[in-house]
Simulated assay, not measured.
Amino acid sequence: MANELNGKRVAILAADGVERVELEQPRQALDRAGAVTELLSLHDGQIQARNNDLDAAGTFDVDALVRSAAVEDYDALLLPGGTVNPDKLRVDQAAVDFVRDFMASGKPVASICHGPWTLLEAGVVAGRTLTSFPSIRTDLRNAGATVVDEEVAIDGNLITSRSPDDLPAFCDAIVRALARVGAAAKDAR
């Protein structure tokens, strides 16, 4: 299983205030499976991570700016949560456009906790089934989404989870979805 993703490239879009475990654990699962992960953000340098939104939890090095990123350079997109992180992303036009274009590409998009706020801002949740942290479910319903209370909800290319408690199932779902994309490409040859 260590190379099942064999160099697939995954964009992780996050800003200051990202919930540390929601970036770190999926990234580790993807890296272990052979993916190459790249952290995109709104500014270069480092982003500040948090634990439970309140406590400082170190930093992550930014690999590239979202405004310079191209959807075609990646095989999947990860949107971690924390309340501050997606709140910053959803007011940045380059981030919103990148998320909208990624959803339109049909490639896997995975979002956890408050991460779907950015999906909502991109206008891509109407008619989709997803889950999230309880406090943003009304926002998602008001935008036309069907919201379920499950550890992982999969609707086509969209994978969502509720909270850090769901990380094992969320990480597994991301790796499986990206592995299926690789298998489908091989079958098409």
Rank of each mutant, 00 (worst) to 15 (best):
M1V: 07
A2L: 12
N3D: 15
N3A: 13
L5R: 02
L5D: 10
L5A: 08
N6I: 06
N6W: 02
N6M: 03
G7P: 01
K8V: 13
R9Q: 08
V10I: 15
A11V: 15
L13R: 03
A14T: 11
A15T: 11
A15S: 15
D16E: 07
D16F: 09
V18E: 01
V18L: 04
V18C: 06
E19W: 06
R20E: 13
R20H: 10
E22W: 13
L23P: 04
L23R: 02
E24A: 10
Q25T: 13
A29N: 07
R32L: 10
A33H: 02
A33M: 03
A33W: 08
G34R: 02
G34F: 11
S41H: 07
L42R: 02
H43C: 08
D44S: 13
Q48D: 14
A49R: 02
R50P: 02
N51T: 07
N51G: 05
N52M: 05
D55A: 14
A56M: 03
G58S: 06
G58L: 09
A64R: 06
L65K: 06
R67C: 14
R67M: 11
S68G: 04
S68K: 06
S68R: 07
E72K: 09
E72D: 15
D73I: 14
D75K: 00
L78T: 04
L79H: 09
G82P: 09
T83M: 08
V84G: 01
P86V: 12
D87E: 06
D87R: 00
K88M: 14
V91F: 13
D97N: 14
V99R: 00
R100G: 04
D101S: 03
F102N: 02
M103H: 03
A104E: 08
A104F: 07
S105E: 06
K107D: 03
K107M: 06
K107P: 00
A110C: 05
A110M: 05
S111Y: 14
W117D: 07
W117P: 00
T118D: 07
L119E: 13
L119H: 10
L119N: 08
L120F: 05
L120N: 14
L120E: 15
L120R: 11
E121S: 15
E121K: 12
A122D: 02
V125D: 08
A126F: 14
A126M: 11
G127C: 06
G127S: 04
R128T: 12
L130Y: 08
L130K: 01
T131I: 03
I136E: 04
R137D: 15
T138Q: 03
D139K: 00
L140F: 07
R141N: 05
N142Q: 11
V147C: 04
V148Y: 11
E150T: 03
V152I: 11
I154A: 03
I154M: 02
D155H: 15
D155Q: 14
D155S: 13
N157H: 08
L158G: 07
L158F: 14
R162V: 04
R162P: 04
S163R: 07
P164I: 11
P164M: 10
D165M: 01
D166E: 10
L167S: 12
P168N: 09
P168D: 13
A169C: 01
C171I: 04
C171T: 01
C171N: 09
C171A: 05
D172I: 08
I174V: 12
I174H: 00
V175Y: 04
A177H: 05
A177S: 12
L178S: 05
V181W: 03
G182M: 02
A184D: 14
K186I: 13
K186M: 09
D187R: 05
D187Q: 08
D187F: 11
